[in-house]
Design a protein around this nucleic acid. Structure first.
Lengths: 160, 160
DNA sequence: GCGAACGTTCAGAAATTTCTGAAGACTGGA
DNA sequence: TCCAGTCTTCAGAAATTTCTGAACGTTCGC
């Protein structure tokens, strides 16, 4: 166990990287807090304290990560506060959910293919459509392969 | 061939969808213009006119889509202006390039795994790392499969 | 070399996003 | 029913992003 400082820095760094990857700042910081926490679950209050931000910001951030499918509400006996923790298959859920935006793009492209008769535009749009359709098609198998791999890895050794 | 209005609307709609998927507004509009244009290539001036925006905005947008690997400069004999057109394997390039941000995330997570000794945080970070590593691993094969499929399709019939 | 056509850069304006803090709503216990 | 603790909502402040337009480079034809 390397020191608490290293942990904090690593969490901060991951949050910044996620922001670089397109995530909103507060959501990323909250997610990092969940990932790096030693507790099994966190409350909104915990997060506000850990991140040094207002209750309002935390509320928004939690709503966002819940909606992404990364964390879930759990009910802890004897506590009136709402607890949240990382979901078990958070990452595959996120991946699958991302593909609804791919689906939106695909739909928009198909509309374009219909609107354009023939010529260069048609060819370009068909190319784009084909790729997005392919991605959407392959995603489920990819996720399934990962789930399987993980299951095996959990039964057997922890190393590949 | 449905009317010019339908084409414009479809282009606009695709641009908006791409914005929804995280792309910047002007970049998305420019990309849509490239996709839907009847010409083989466009100049910065063409784009400025088509989109009704300043030369400065166009310059920035072009820089961005070039850097994404979606369009390329071509040199047209007899024209002093710089022409751009969609690259042939634009979408697979984009996909591959996206994975450098996945790689950044993976690196940040690995740093987290190192910083955290054991316990819940360790398990969560390992889960995340495994998924991102898996994605990165599978990407090249996915792209190759698509390229192959496309090659076949081009030789044979245009329909699946 | 000169001049004109193009493209790029950058400071600042405009629009948008993000955060806060205060007010209000919900929940469970007494 | 009332109260205290907890969470959510929302208007506005603050920060950030995005776009413009003007000034500056570049390049090509002459």
């Amino acid at each position: 166990m390397t020191g608490e400082t290293a942990r904090r820095e690593a969490a901060e760094h991951l949050a910044l990287t996620l922001v670089g990857a397109g995530m909103q700042r507060m959501g990323a910081r909250a997610l990092a807090a969940f990932l790096f926490s030693d507790k099994e679950s966190l409350t909104a209050g915990d997060l506000a304290e850990e991140l040094g931000v207002s209750a309002g910001s935390v509320s928004g951030a939690i709503k966002m990560i819940v909606q992404m499918g990364l964390i879930e509400r759990i009910y802890v006996a004897g506590s009136r506060r709402e607890h949240f923790r990382m979901r078990d298959n958070a990452w595959t859920t996120l991946y699958s959910r991302q593909h609804s935006v791919v689906d939106d793009v695909l739909t928009a492209v198909e509309r374009g293919v219909d609107a354009v008769g023939s010529g260069p535009a048609f060819q370009r749009l068909v190319d784009m459509r084909d790729f997005y359709a392919f991605l959407l098609d392959e995603a489920p198998a990819l996720v399934e392969r990962f789930e399987q791999l993980r299951a095996e890895r959990r039964r057997g050794g922890s190393r590949p």
